[in-house]
Design a binder for these strands. Structure first.
Lengths: 205, 205
DNA sequence: TTGTAAATTGGACTTTGGTCCAATACGGAA
DNA sequence: TTCCGTATTGGACCAAAGTCCAATTTACAA
């Protein structure tokens, strides 16, 4: 899987230079002339990150970062800039930027930042996909099975759950057996570990 | 519980001014003339944070931050500086600083940073104390009970655990009952939730 | 040497959990 | 209307977990 590095800078010569450097380091550069152009993109299959010029006509790099946060796109960002200042860099870092490099910077500085950014993205993608896998299983549950699940992971006995739901213990056992199958676990311990990774609303009453 | 704000700056007039501002905002200022002076401190009972001048004779603010990381002291840091630059601020943020304010800054900027820092520290302290509470319970376990615990929270049956440990199922039940008491839980689900908060080495074999 | 804590096991039960087969009831989709 | 998925329950069992009382062995400290 190629590690894609989006290069967003309005200066063609900068794009070209960075693309060459990044390519030589074994990444897959994707030069783009504007932040708007990047926002058109919808496909984010593999590991990737952004190298982003702060100052650009139209949407600035900072604007793009904020826009991505708003839209829930979470690709690690590395800023580069010729005319930055401290508050700007601090805000970018607060918003989760991996690095903020004033020009001129060493090639090695940029490449090490890219390395960190890509690794971060890989970790995030792994977490996310596991979370989604679990969510998919939860969606297979019927409403009643979901009710039972929420009580089971808080350690209640079948008879207690039965009382809460106003049904017999027998019924709870059936639901419980089926939800364990659908969640693909063989023990309550495994079930708890799974559900801790997603947010499960705690049961009422 | 007073919210203590350590002010570390070599300039007495700055210390005085900041102390007044911070006091007026309802915090408890603790002015110190040097980073070395702060490192003497050992008592960190209540919520607190640091307002730290970057440039100082002897240990600089940056040095102090690194020293604290090395020693495992985790108080949120806010840097203030008259002569900073971007790489310095970025590195400070990477190392977990809450904010980095070049002089001159607005009072409100500093106060809002302090507010965030204190809240962060309160959350950290809460997490830490819960973790320690759990660790204390784990220390009550005999080696054998701890062995059993590690298998229980991975969802093994008593008979499986017995086989792993080379003892009878009966024995496992006894250990299991006692560890549940010592951990103060009534169900495997609760036990798993507790142990997820600390790191438990996964069992071998 | 004498405790003391830890580890181990047995017997005898009770309570819980889980499964198989079967059946009833309800509501929406074809 | 008919069929399917969901929810519910019963009976009959078996497996697993938990408890109470009692006993033996071992290692380490006073």
């Amino acid at each position: 899987m190629p590690k894609r590095v989006f290069i967003i800078d309005d200066d063609p010569s900068v794009r070209k230079g960075l693309a060459r450097l990044i390519k030589s380091a074994g990444f897959h550069p994707e030069p783009l002339a504007s932040a708007e152009g990047f926002l058109q993109k919808t496909r984010f299959n593999g590991p990737a990150c952004l190298v982003l010029d702060v100052r650009m006509p139209g949407l600035s790099g900072i604007d793009l970062q904020k826009e991505m946060i708003k839209k829930g796109i979470s690709l690690p960002v590395i800023f580069i800039t010729g005319h930055g200042n401290i508050p700007m860099s601090v805000n970018a870092m607060k918003d989760g930027a991996v690095d903020f490099l004033p020009k001129p910077f060493d090639d090695t500085q940029l490449l090490s930042a890219i390395e960190r950014a890509i690794n971060k993205n890989i970790r995030m993608r792994k977490n996310l996909s596991e979370k989604e896998k679990i969510q998919r299983r939860i969606k297979l549950l019927t409403p009643r099975e979901y009710d039972v699940l929420r009580w089971v992971i808080t350690g209640r006995l079948n008879k207690q759950i039965a009382a809460k739901l106003g049904v017999t213990e027998k019924t709870v056992k059936v639901h419980r057996g089926r939800l364990m199958q659908k969640m693909q676990v063989k023990s309550v311990a495994e079930l708890v570990v799974l559900t801790q990774k997603c947010e499960i609303g705690s049961p009422k009453r």
